[in-house]
């Protein structure tokens, strides 16, 4: 099994009838880091929400060889960790520990294992000292790291990011990019931050009005001014 994600002819329209995705097909190999770029409303976030079955469109999605279906949603959500754009949506517990522990506790691990997983996840984002802090009072960059830890604690094989650098100051942004470079998981990053895409990913997929309009090496696509201009990215 070479591909960890296989999307086959995925289409989706919102209840109001607006087509958000039109016949998307995409194969992602193990360990690949892919940037998903496109103007606002191109369908990036909609596509991401299909990867763990939050939205259900027409077509097939295979995660690690398993077809995404109602009865294996729980398992797939453990494989695909989504880091949402606004960390405030993701952090809802009184302490960092409880937030990071949510996934493993839900999965049914015992107390000792949960503590181990929380330690590991916080260490991976270099936030071990923050275990007893209140998420609400952290800075933007710190919240982002904790949000990443909350999915890392489930030990997913795929990390999905929606606008990871939005709202971060330059230093927090740089530190986040350095952190993402360290993490070994397969990554799908929806972003407007083309510099981040170039530094972090080897492959870029451009979405426009719900369709994939370009798919190739990041260095080539992201330096093609004409192409970027056409799709509202420059």
């Amino acid at each position: 099994m070479d591909n960890i994600i296989e999307i086959d002819n995925l289409s989706f329209h919102y209840p109001d009838g607006k087509m958000a995705l039109k016949g998307i097909s995409l194969k992602v190999r193990h360990g690949e880091k892919i940037a998903l770029v496109g103007a606002n409303g191109a369908g990036k976030s909609t596509l991401l929400l299909h990867l763990n079955g939050i939205l259900e469109g027409m077509g097939q999605i295979f995660i690690n060889g398993m077809e995404l279906k109602k009865d294996n949603l729980g398992q797939i959500r453990g494989l695909v960790g989504i880091v949402f754009q606004n960390p405030d949506d993701q952090l809802f517990s009184p302490t960092v520990f409880e937030d990071v522990a949510y996934g493993p506790i839900y999965q049914g691990y015992d107390k000792k294992t949960v503590e181990g997983k929380v330690d590991q996840a916080l260490a991976a984002v270099h936030m071990t000292d923050f275990v007893n802090r209140i998420p609400y009072h952290l800075s933007g960059g710190e919240k982002k790291r904790i949000a990443i830890a909350t999915v890392l604690s489930m030990q997913p094989q795929i990390l999905v990011f929606d606008e990871p650098t939005s709202g971060l100051d330059p230093r927090a942004r740089r530190e986040l990019i350095e952190l993402l470079l360290e993490l070994p998981q397969t990554m799908l990053i929806a972003t407007h931050d083309l510099r981040l895409a170039e530094v972090l990913t080897s492959r870029t997929v451009i979405l426009d009005q719900g369709s994939i309009v370009a798919d190739g090496p990041s260095t080539t696509l992201l330096n093609d001014r004409e192409l970027l201009k056409t799709y509202g990215l420059w």
């Binding site: 939050i54 398992q75 959500r77 453990g78 960790g81 506790i105 999965q107 049914g108």
Partner: peptide, 18 residues
């Protein structure tokens, strides 16, 4: 939606959901 995304199950764990 963010919570649902983190509500995962293990293939062989009987204690799901806390």
């Amino acid at each position: 939606r963010a919570r649902t995304s983190r509500s995962a199950t293990l293939p062989d764990s009987p204690h799901v959901g806390g």
